[in-house]
Design a protein around this nucleic acid. Sequence first.
DNA 1: GCTTGACCCTCACGCCGCGTGAGGCTGGAG
DNA 2: CTCCAGCCTCACGCGGCGTGAGGGTCAAGC
Lengths: 267, 267
Amino acid sequence: MPDATDADGLTVGQVSARLGVTVRALHHWDGIGLARPSLRTAAGYRLYTAGDLERLHRVVVYRELGLGLDGIRAVLDDSTADVPGALRAQRARVAERIDRLRQLSAGLDRMIDAHEHGLLLTIEQQVAVFGPQWNPDWPAQARQRYGDTTQWLQYAERSASRGPEEWQAVADAVAGLDRALGEAMDAGVTPGSPEANRLVERHREVFASYFPLTRRMQVCLGRMYEADPAFAAHYDGIRSGLATWFRRLVDASARAHGIDPDTATWR
Amino acid sequence: MPDATDADGLTVGQVSARLGVTVRALHHWDGIGLARPSLRTAAGYRLYTAGDLERLHRVVVYRELGLGLDGIRAVLDDSTADVPGALRAQRARVAERIDRLRQLSAGLDRMIDAHEHGLLLTIEQQVAVFGPQWNPDWPAQARQRYGDTTQWLQYAERSASRGPEEWQAVADAVAGLDRALGEAMDAGVTPGSPEANRLVERHREVFASYFPLTRRMQVCLGRMYEADPAFAAHYDGIRSGLATWFRRLVDASARAHGIDPDTATWR
DNA sequence: GCTTGACCCTCACGCCGCGTGAGGCTGGAG
DNA sequence: CTCCAGCCTCACGCGGCGTGAGGGTCAAGC
């Protein structure tokens, strides 16, 4: 007789191989009294009888159904236990977890999209929100340029939880600011004036819906508006010379907050 | 100024209320260095600045996506981190977990069905497997009678993982045994003979596919075959008097194994 | 100035189901 | 007699905090 079938007990290793559970699990179930071997050899080896194997098998079955060890113990030991009830409760828990995971997966999809495309709107929605002069390639271009900055990450994180209405609000705020800038320039607002500083603050707040903008970063942004052809075209399109004028507003405001605009850096 | 907005920091309680995380979580994140407050009061109170809040907010966002704290740390701290890659990996993990949970749910359904109906086959399958004299109400009746016994539980557990083919095998074994019993009775096999004991053992083995049957239980079963009208009808339908003859076979075999059939109990 | 009650602090254990060693016997084969 | 696989018993670790214990702090009301 090589090892097993008609012996009066199987060792942990043999049971492990038969039932596909680890030896450690058998030790554990023995330790907590869930399924203990009826016998031990003189040397202390655990010996599982046929009856023990029955019980172990049942443990394995219910464990595969995701029941906790206490639940399994109840099912096996308490003859008054409502087994179908316990199973249904377990099924409800599982359904709940599936639901949560699905929502989670959807959230991940949104976030991945936001990271990769910058916007989660269809082309139609983009045009509807941002107006006809909107170029759908801009988010992709922005990602090209800024995709490896912390600010892009924050932008993407916020984009992921922004629907069309919220984007509309952002777009409205930007448009309102553009208009206000144009009118202020018409009205001859000069850098450093209270009116000018209010506009600079308003710009910072509007921008904060993309990512938090420090005053130093705002200085750099002002210079970019002036230097970058695309930005300059936009602002000079509102009023000729507006980009430069706005940069001077930002510089003045920064100086008023103790920042030297000529040495300010993005970080 | 009541509490917060322009103070130079928020306490744990305030942050907790704003971000919807527990105070303990803030402590934990501080403890592991994931998100620590920049300031402390003289008394040691944590004070979270606006910048700290930014970071906390990002932690919350990624935590809601199911990232582990180490993953979040990587995303927040390592500017070279592949954020979309991490998110995609997380999505894959989530999909995997959903899959497992779905299988688990299906298993639970099967088990619940098995517990409630006793069989997981359609009526057509039942008739195909068990023959035209099969009554589809039998499993429900069996549940009525035995639904609160350990053996019913084990029967249900095994049924849950048995398909039509396996049921066919069981049905074939049962039919084969019935035939063999009839032929043995014709041949004048007497209780206690080796031939008779072989048949009794074969009955025990066939029955073991439903649930483990001890010799004592088999004795009780033999008596039930004789006493219960439905069982008696079945066995006496094979050969007149077969139920009683078989009961005597079982009794004799039990005696040969040191069991007194007149005092044997199910348990 | 003293009390009260809401907040805050720092340990430190608990959870769930084992995985993973460490350190040391046992048992059958060569 | 030696080897090596297999067994034993501790005991820590994991993930992300929950939940006290035991004790300071702060603003308000008396």
